[in-house]
Amino acid sequence: MRAVITVTGKDTVGILARVSTLCANYQANVIEVSQTVLQDMFAMIMMVDINRITCNFSELADVMRQEGQKHGLVIHVMHEDLFNSMHRI
């Protein structure tokens, strides 16, 4: 099982570090990261393996959302199945 983490907001130092530290804390393994900075807007999409996470999925989503709010970022954690079902026949 994999999840997609998306992070958007104003670019600051250490966004990637913060999000990946949280992933590590819960044993979510980062598989792929792509990020862009357009003017000063930061956008990152991260694919993580959630087979061995130490909390349940909704807890991880909550933690990420709160972390985002603290730093003025919008962080979504969504199950990969949603994207697969919407964009693949």
Binding site: I45, L82, F83, H87, R88
Partner: peptide, 16 residues
């Protein structure tokens, strides 16, 4: 594999 554009499209649909 899903691409970034598809991911962003979905997020935009939900958020905006």
């Amino acid at each position: 594999m899903i691409n970034n554009q598809e991911i962003l499209e979905t997020i935009q649909m939900i958020q905006d």
